[in-house]
Each structure stands twice: as C-alpha cells, then as structure tokens.
Design a protein around this nucleic acid. Structure first.
Lengths: 196, 196
DNA sequence: GTCTATATTGCGATAGAC
DNA sequence: GTCTATCGCAATATAGAC
C-alpha cells in the first residue's frame, strides 16, 4: 500500500471505532485489523495509538474553521445565529462522528481535551458571545438577557437534539429530511425568546 | 470491614473514577486501591468490574424516579416544565457525576445503555411529550409547534449548560449561586417561544 | 470476608528480517 | 514500508489459605 493511502486508510477506518468506543475502548490490533494493515503500521505512521487518536481529533475539529466565515459576514446578528445553527446541523450530517468526539472528550477527557477540544469549543462560544453583544449594542435584544445563558441555550437546543438520537430514535424522528423544520423551529423559539 | 460498609465503600469510591474515565478507562486495581480494599473484593461483591459498573449505573439512574412525583402533580403544564428544569438542576448539583454517566453512555454505550440508560431517557422524554400534548389540548401553546422539537429544545438548554462546564469554566460562570437566574432565564426564553 | 499468589489473556510497542 | 516474532507489562479473574 502506498504511503498516503495507508495513512489515510488507517485514519478512515479508525474514526468510527474511536467514535463508538472511545480511546480506551479500542485496541491497536482492532484498529490495524479494521484498516487491513499490520499492527506495526500504527506506530510507524502515528507513533502509537494515542498519536493516531490525536491526529483524528485534530482532523475532526479542523472543520470548526467553517465558523470563521460566518463570523466575518456582514449580516444581521439574528441571521448569524441562524447560520451557526445551520452550520452545526450541516457539520453533524456531513460528519456523523464529530459529536461523539465532542461529547466523549467533554465527559471522559483525554490529553487532547486541553490542547484540541477545549480551545475549539471556547472559540465557538466566544464567537456566539461576541455576536450577542453586537446585537445588544444595536438594541435588538432585550437588555435583561444574560449573554452566556442565552448563547448556551441556543447551542444546547441544537446540539442536544443530536446527542439524544441514540436514545430517542423510536420516540423522535431524527431523519435529515426534518432538519429544515428543526432549524426553523429552534430559531422560532429562540427569536421569540430574545427579541424585544 | 463489615459487609455493607465494604460494598458501599467500593461503590462510593468507584463512582468518581468511572465518571471521569469511563468503564474502559479504569482498572480493577485502581478501583480496589481507591476503596482501600483487596482487588478480589470487586469480584466477590459485584462479580467483576462490569458488575460494579452496572450496579453504579442502576443506582445513579434510580434518581430519575423523582420525576414521577412531578408528573402526578395537578399543576399548570408550563409550571410542570419549570419543575422539570428545577429537578434537573437539583439532580446535577446533588450528584455531580450523573451527567457524566448519561453522556458517556450516549456517546460510548456499554451493555448498560439498552437496559438502564435508554429506558430512563425515554421515560423523561415521554413525560415531557405528554405534558406538552396536555398543554396543547388546553390551547395554551401555539398549534404549529412540533412536540418533540419543543421538549428536546427545553431539555437541551438545561442539559447542555452542564455538559459544557468543563470546557467553558473560564468563559461562563457555572456556580450554583447562579442556578436560580439560569432557570428563570431558560424558562423565560422557552415560554416566550411557545406560548400563544 | 479478606488475604496472597497465580493463571491466563490481552495489551502496546518494537527489533530485525526482507 | 511491511512483515513476523516477541518482549515486557498490565489486565481480569480466581483458587486456596486463613
């Protein structure tokens, strides 16, 4: 197998395994077997299991940079919140494993939490806070709102919907076809809740 | 050490370990050492590490029965939603490990997910759905609201706040002193969002 | 009930041949 | 780069003494 093929191949087959079982739940042998390569290849390319895990997390959280584009747009603050929600849904649909890494690290942090995950989360929350402050200075939102509580409420509505999916599949329709309705529903509750 | 003391002692010292590192992240030796007992005691009392984990999960999720009391109260549906939020905050404050087990099982499920965690979550969601339907039949809420999206939005706002705590401690004040303000804030957004 | 000692398995990592 | 073979260690679990 060629250099890059092998490396990418290992990552591609490791992602669902780490996402489903966490760093400690997967063995090097299992990872190698899933990729169809010799187990020594994981040390060769990534310096070990933890190196592979770190490489995957870096890759997963790089997608968060999409949010920079939203941040720099010259649009209404409420529209920016909606774009955040849309981007979040879009990311989770394109990458079904991202949320797992997110919550796995939040709940059972590894060494990657401080270096990769926490900075990524802080960046998103900070962006949302800045946007809220901006809207408040333009007198768009009610003055008695707490900025942190408000943006975490919005983030919670959309993220929790996906987090609960494994438990509520029979009770709630989680198909992508309903995403548009879900987004409008959340933005509807949110805007009625915060607008003057 | 007496029977019950030892058993309870093992559980008490295992809870924070399992909560922080997950089932696979903790060894029997570590558990025994933390409890100050011989490692063979874990097999003796619980039949092994997984048995101890299952016993802990059962205990943790038993607290959810508090919600039955709320369900049977003869009060306004919106008040019931508020009591759910208050009970959730109260549970997380009384038991700082519950949410970890919750999300750890949602993200990296063990054998306990289907038997213990999923039924517990479904029960809560079903209770919220019933309450919403009840309010809708009394024409209290807007008719165009989707029941599932609505109750998951409420649950998401309060649960996500606690889930993000390890990442946003420097950015957001998560002290219990602010809980009352947080609850009123969430209920404020929620009720403006769903009331007619 | 609690200990020591140990059986057994699986782990992550690497040396060295090719 | 990729393989086999293996080292050294830690894992869970239990047998058997007390």
């Amino acid at each position: 197998m060629a250099d890059k093929d092998c490396r990418e191949n290992i990552i591609a087959s490791a992602v669902p395994l780490f996402a489903a079982k966490g760093l400690n739940g997967v063995s090097v042998r299992e990872l190698a077997s899933a990729a169809g390569v010799n187990l020594s290849m994981i040390s060769y390319y990534f310096g070990g299991k933890e190196g592979l895990y770190a490489a995957i997390l870096t890759e997963q959280f790089a997608i968060l940079r999409t949010l920079d584009e939203i941040d720099q747009m010259e649009i209404d603050t409420l529209q920016k919140f909606e774009l955040y929600v849309r981007a979040t849904v879009s990311r989770y649909r394109k990458n079904p494993y991202l949320l797992r890494f997110y919550t796995s690290e939040l709940t059972n942090p590894t060494a990657c939490f401080e270096t990769i995950v926490k900075p990524a989360i802080n960046k998103v929350v900070q962006m949302l806070l800045d946007n809220f402050t901006d809207g408040l200075s333009h007198k768009k939102f009610r003055e008695d709102l707490d900025p942190a509580d408000t943006v975490l409420a919005l983030a919670g509505m959309i993220n929790f919907y996906f987090l609960l999916e494994p438990a509520t599949a029979e009770l709630v329709d989680h198909t992508p076809e309903r995403d548009e309705k879900l987004i409008r529903h959340i933005m509807d509750i949110f805007s009625r809740g915060i607008l003057k």
